[in-house]
Design a protein around this nucleic acid. Structure first.
Lengths: 226, 226
DNA sequence: AGCGGATTTTGATAAATGTTCAATGATAAA
DNA sequence: TTTATCATTGAACATTTATCAAAATCCGCT
């Protein structure tokens, strides 16, 4: 589980990062609003912990703008004491929960747990469904749609897509893909994978020339990133 | 499987009803909260799809009150974009899942399947009558007619048709079909299924060369889609 | 049991569809 | 700018599916 912590108080960052990591979370931090916003919009977190008072861009703005961009990651806001009115504001802007400083770390953990538990789909064990951009993939039915329009994928295209999605975030060399998806044993070198990747981009990406999800990692191979 | 759809947007009602019915569900609709509530409390549904914004009584209230009355039918809430906080509220009130508008219909289908799979008494009742194109199938009598003219199907043809219809929408590999319809254990490879499919198409499709209902999914197998 | 017709299976071949490969041009790193 | 890597294309190639008819099987009947 990946958590983004947006907080400027150095001490709190250390305490929380430490504790969260020891709870098994993968933690990234940003110490100002702008950095937080860009991290949150470019990477897929399971939860965002967002302080209200931040340099450059305050928590409310970050929250509102993320929601405006369609980011649906649960957000837990941290407000300073006496900002009662602001809690409501935070919730209106799309936050999912809030916590008033100072707080007990254990309470934070409890709320995190609650938020992660109630975010459906995210913590699904066997994802038989996946959505990215305006593409929807149903693994059970071997069906893909884009903006409600069914997209026809060949069997290989579908298998490749499935593999990339199931192992998203990681880079796969062409050979790994040939091995994992095609079952070929280290065929010397070939453009087969490239061609299939190109087809997938053609059919699924908004702008195939500049793929947003099916990315190439120069010198290494390909990866899926949402 | 009976689904109650509580939604006030006429267009969405049509789209969803249509699709859900073609997936084999028995769909009833209510276009305001009160009607939805009374239908849900008086009849036994397997699933309720509940919009949040509704005339007369909003989705939250419907959800809370149904749970308060002891109705345990799984509820899938539809929230408008940006109502993030409301999702949580919905879950607190006893909803089982939610989906944010706009969504891809196949995502809704996937979530419905997941919810139904989770729910206990999932003994599916297969209808004893089915219609597609100008074909009518009577499962009880094992009779098929096309344009009122009786069509003679052999036993195997009929069983295959029935299986495809009862599991419509899903793709079945030849082996799955051999297993499910013929009861053969993974016979190596055979043209049996193909031939039977061809016969069904010959007898039932308007244009057997370009089947409208009994479709082939290259690389995967066959599926029935209406 | 044996016969005859209907049904089912099978394998061969044709048709449709999907995949691979190598050449070429484009792009990114050094 | 140079070099390495990647994207794209179309034609050759491979696989999968449709169709057909012969062979095998099943089934009701005597």
């Amino acid at each position: 589980m990946k958590i983004l912590l947006v907080e400027d108080e150095q001490g709190l960052i250390l305490t929380l990062t430490d504790r969260l990591q020891s709870e098994g979370f993968d933690v990234k931090t940003a110490s100002d609003g702008e950095t937080g916003f860009s991290l949150a919009s470019n990477e897929n977190f399971d939860l965002i912990i967002l302080d209200v008072m931040l340099p450059k861009k305050n928590g409310y703005d970050v929250c509102r703008d993320l929601r405006g961009k369609g980011v649906e990651t649960p957000i837990l806001m941290l407000t300073a004491k006496g900002e009662t009115i602001d809690k409501v504001l935070g919730l209106k802007l799309g936050a999912d929960d809030y916590l008033t400083k100072p707080f007990e770390v254990i309470e934070l953990l409890a709320r995190i747990e609650a938020l992660l538990r109630r975010s459906p789909g995210k913590n699904q064990i066997s994802p038989d469904f996946f959505r990215f951009g305006d593409v929807a993939v149903d693994f059970k039915r071997a069906e893909v749609s884009k903006n409600e329009e069914p997209v026809e994928l060949s069997a290989m295209e579908f298998k490749l897509l499935q593999y990339l999605i199931e192992n998203r975030g990681r880079v796969h060399s062409r050979n790994d893909l040939l091995d994992a998806v095609w079952g070929y044993d280290a065929m010397p070198s070939t453009r087969t994978v490239d061609v299939h990747v190109a087809w997938l981009r053609q059919k699924l990406e908004a702008n195939p020339k500049h793929p947003q999800f099916i990315q190439t990692v120069h010198g290494f191979g390909y990866k899926f990133q949402d």
